[in-house]
């Protein structure tokens, strides 16, 4: 049991970078970006091919990150310059990347790197991942407090406002999408090195896993500040893996049900808080109306 939880923590940290990427698009930019399914594989494919080819695993990991950046820029250009709907831009890139990923992998659907040196060779995977995730988190927090980072956040919060203050929101969107997919690809590169092989279908459903992590994290740990929110996303990714591990211990569920379970988690996490909010609002309105009618309680204010 303890072993299973340790395994989940490791996986959670490996996927946490992907979840941070999803957080940037989904929460900060308010842009549901489906490129993720493709760019995760792109990162994995680049890392697998380079490591299999004898390159340094760190160089391979950096190249995977760059590959993700480029994929994100493409989605951003489709959306901002090509004026294509955001969802569709992501879907188009996801499909296009499927072929590109196969090309990267030399038209082989999977590449094994089991006997090659990876960044985890001779190191403790958990320690490496904790360091990497903490560094990435702090850098991201810092970036989001810079002038460019503020403009990026405002693009998702009130686009008209930040444009009236002279920020090119097309550019900020492209930067956000690029950074997001870079992190997603980085996560893919880590997963390949942990599992020992890269597969062209490894990214399928990644966007939903990322969403699940973001939503679970925010629900449990809160998202009052950027620092809290990014921490919540990382912890959400870990909790998600633990939930999946626990679910798989149920007798009548097996590994092929993981995607269904993930979808259900996201659905519950989206529906329950919304229902609770509207119920609370309703009871609040009832209470205040009763107070106003009976003349007790604070006077109603207009503002």
């Amino acid at each position: 049991m303890l072993n299973a939880i340790m395994k989940s923590v490791e996986l959670g940290l490996l996927f946490a970078l992907m979840a941070l990427g999803v957080y940037i698009t989904f929460r900060i930019l308010d842009f549901p970006d489906l490129t993720v399914d493709g760019s995760f594989t792109t990162g994995g494919a680049i890392a697998a091919v380079m490591i299999a080819g004898g390159y340094s695993p760190w160089l391979a990991t950096i190249c995977a990150f760059l590959g993700g950046l480029v994929a994100g820029v493409c989605t951003g250009l489709l959306h901002t310059k090509g004026k294509i709907n955001g969802l569709l831009s992501g879907i188009l890139m996801m499909i296009a990347l499927y072929s590109i990923n196969l090309r990267i992998m030399g038209k082989k659907p999977n590449i094994a790197i089991l006997n090659m040196d990876t960044i985890f060779t001779g190191a403790n995977l958990l320690v490496v991942m904790i360091v990497v995730v903490v560094v990435v988190k702090l850098l991201l927090d810092l970036f989001l407090r810079t002038n460019l980072g503020l403009a990026l956040r405002a693009t998702g919060d009130n686009e008209r406002m930040i444009r009236s203050f002279g920020a090119n929101t097309g550019t900020t969107k492209i930067i956000g999408l690029s950074l997001s997919n870079g992190l997603v690809a980085l996560s893919g590169a880590f997963i390949v090195q942990q599992s020992g092989f890269g597969d062209v279908t490894m990214g399928v459903g990644m966007i939903v896993v990322g969403l699940a992590s973001v939503i679970i994290g925010e629900a449990i740990f809160g998202a009052k500040t950027v620092f809290r929110a990014t921490l919540a996303v990382i912890l959400g990714s870990v909790v998600y893996r633990i939930v999946i591990a626990l679910a798989l211990r149920v007798e009548w569920l097996d590994a092929s049900d993981v995607k269904l379970i993930t979808a259900l988690i996201v659905i519950i996490a989206l529906v329950v808080p919304a229902a609770r909010r509207s119920a609370k609002q309703k009871s609040q309105a009832h209470k205040r109306t009763a107070e106003l009618l009976s003349g007790t309680g604070p006077k109603g204010g207009v503002s």
Partner: peptide, 8 residues
Amino acid sequence: KVRGFGLG
């Protein structure tokens, strides 16, 4: 102004 990497 150009929005760069200076702290906001």
